[in-house]
Each structure stands twice: as C-alpha cells, then as structure tokens.
Design a protein around this nucleic acid. Sequence first.
DNA 1: AACACCATCCCCCGAAAGGGTGATTTTATA
DNA 2: TATAAAATCACCCTTTCGGGGGATGGTGTT
Lengths: 210, 210
Amino acid sequence: MPVTIAIYEDNHNLRETISGFLNEYPEYQVVGAYVNGAGAFANTTSLLPDVAIVDIDMPEVDGIECTRQIKMANLSTQIIMHTVFEDDNKLFECLCAGANGYILKSATPDQLLDAINDVVKGGSPMSSVIARKVLDTFKQQSTATNAYNLSQREKEILDLLVKGYSYKMIASHSGIGFETVKTHLKNIYTKLHVTCGREAVAKAIKDRIV
Amino acid sequence: MPVTIAIYEDNHNLRETISGFLNEYPEYQVVGAYVNGAGAFANTTSLLPDVAIVDIDMPEVDGIECTRQIKMANLSTQIIMHTVFEDDNKLFECLCAGANGYILKSATPDQLLDAINDVVKGGSPMSSVIARKVLDTFKQQSTATNAYNLSQREKEILDLLVKGYSYKMIASHSGIGFETVKTHLKNIYTKLHVTCGREAVAKAIKDRIV
DNA sequence: AACACCATCCCCCGAAAGGGTGATTTTATA
DNA sequence: TATAAAATCACCCTTTCGGGGGATGGTGTT
C-alpha cells in the first residue's frame, strides 16, 4: 500500500516535477496536486492523503490556511511545509496551524523522500536552523521567569489564587489565617507591580510563575 | 582556531571515548571533562567553551541544572544534550533551561561531529522524533480555542478584565455604563463556568480566548 | 409576527477584596 | 549570636465584586 500524497504548489513546473518524481516510485502515490489551498478541506475529506506537501506562499488561499483546512478535515494527514527559505514569522504561524515538518525547496529529491518517510513514521523533519528558531521561542517564553523574588509561601498562595480560590479558601487550604493571606497577597501584588488579583493572575500565567 | 568543547558525562568510559575521539581532530579541542554539573558555572566562566556536550542523567547535579549554570555563565556556549533516548518530560525542561541541540547516545561519531558543527553555525540539531515532540507542544497551546460562545462584546470586556481593568475602567474604556459591564461579566462568568474574575482571567489565558 | 440573542441599563445587598499600619514569631544566614 | 527575611496575625476602613432580580430596544431568523 503506497503512501498517498497531496501536493499544494502554485508553481506549475515544480508541482509537476515533484508529482512526476514521486510517482516513479511504487511506494508513493500522488493523489492530488493543486495550485493553492482552495478546496483543501474537501480534497482532504474525500482523499484522506497520508501526507500533504504544502507550499507556504500561494495565491488566494495560502499555505497556512491550507494547513488549517487539511488538519480540520483529517488530523492524521501529515503536513510538510515547503518553502523557499527559513521565514521567521510564517514559521510560527505554520506550527500553530499544525504543520508536521518543514523542508526547503532547495532540498534534494532524496531529502524530500526522507522527509516524507519521517512524517509518516511520526517524526518532524526540519533543518537545524529552523529547529533553532523553534527552540528560541521556547526560551523566550521561559526567560521572563521568577525575577519577582517571591517566597515559597507567596508562590503557593499565588498558585491558589490562579486556581480561583477566594481569600477564605486559600486560608483554610493552607491552614493559615485570613488576615495572613491578605498580608501575603498585599506583598505579592507589590512585588508583581499589580493592583488587583486578576492582574496578578494574568501576570503569573504569562510569566510562567505558576 | 579549534572549536573548544566541554564534556559533562558521568560514565567514565564514554567520557574518555568522546574526549579522545574529538581530540584526534585539530579542529576540535576538549578543554574540560566532568562527571556532573557541579562547578559548571565556574568551569564555563573560566574556560568559555564554544560547545558543551551535556548528559541529562548525571548524579548530584544533573544535566538540566548543568545547562542552566552554563548558560548563566556564558550565553554563547552552545549546549548539546546527550541522552540515551527521547525522554518526554525532561526534554521540555532542557529546552527551557537553554539547550541548543539534542543528540542520542546511540548516534555515530560522525553524527556527533555534525551536531557540533551545527550548533556552532547557529543551528539546533535534533532528530525528527524529538522535533515532533517540540512541535506538539506548540499545537497543544493553540488547539483549545473558543468553544464558550462568547459574543464580540463579551470577548472585548474579558480582554480588558485580563489586562487588570476594574469594572469602572472597563465601562469608561468601552463607553458603556457600569451596570452594563456587570451584566456582561455575569454572563461571561456563566459561560466560562467560573465564579470570579480571577478564575475567568486564568481560563481566558489558558484557553487562548484572549 | 414571534422568537432568540445581544447589548444596554437599573436597583438591591451582602460578601469579598484591597490598602494602611502595626506587631509577633520563626527561620535562615551572616 | 545578631540580623535579616519570611511567615504569621490583628484592626480599621473603603471600594469593588458578584449574584439576584427586572426592563428596554435592536437585530436577525424562522
């Protein structure tokens, strides 16, 4: 049973080249080739391809929207983004849309085959340069950590506040008095530079304190 | 000028093997080899290695803490995590700690060299399996969307609530009455199945409503 | 026309939040 | 052991929340 593949690529030559190249192998079968993401949902629903190779820059319905449509139609279709080069902002959008791999158009045919095999086996092929960009977003998220100098008790109470506990509930949960909770929260608000509990909750979550 | 390398690996044989292997090449120079992360900060500060190869599982001071220490001492030291296999929970911790690459101990010497070259060139070498896990956390963050059926106005008010606005401030900001804000928030709390503003804020952020 | 939904506003009322000031005890650390 | 930091509690006071009603007008759908 061959791996079924859908291709979304606006460049006619490239589309035919990839399609023809893959069809030379009995283990791959191109079941669809389209100039953009229009109809991606319907195509995917009816064909259920194992893999979709999606160009990011396409007219009308671009690769990101196309990726969303495909994933909405069939979550198990593995999506390989195909792009001219490592593009920063769109990379992130692709990831959120549900892309499973990222391959450059400058890649060799063999690398394309590797990428296809990778995604069907549950991997996410991408260059180390792209991987670095992905990793950087992680660190970015976790750098702004606890520079607020909260004590252990304060973190605990803030955590309960985020969970929606009232002052009273926090007091009984932590086995301390109501007034103590108030004092702690006053200090917490001061340290976080916020003026109310809701703002503290937002900051706690966004800055990964909890 | 050779690439300077520090090795953190508790297994004596492996440590010596890697060290010896790398030192065979004039373009690489192992400047330190340690059994765990103790003293990583000091080592890094004085040696400023280009690359550190860090085993995740080490006694006393493990690879994650080691990674933090190294990055704290010198941000430009590129860190390659070295592990027996793709470990889920620690992977994420490593990324947050600042790891730049992820290589398996089963990798061939050539692959190790590739990884080293990758990180010094600004890439992040990792297997496609690991890359997939990283990507999955992205999607996880963006999937749980708005199924709460909030109206546009309600979303707007919830957004302001997250920003720390008081009811009064929301009212004047949105140009509506205080009582209207209250009504909206009552409805919002009902729709989100929460009982107070802080809980709503937490839910709004975690479920990416705002 | 009837209905659902949204946005707007009003009143009442008790509970909760939060800000100020001050004090004691425990714990960690220099 | 002195000292700082953290944790604990108390009292006062005002404002804000949050839940319960109920009401009106607009919009869009059936």
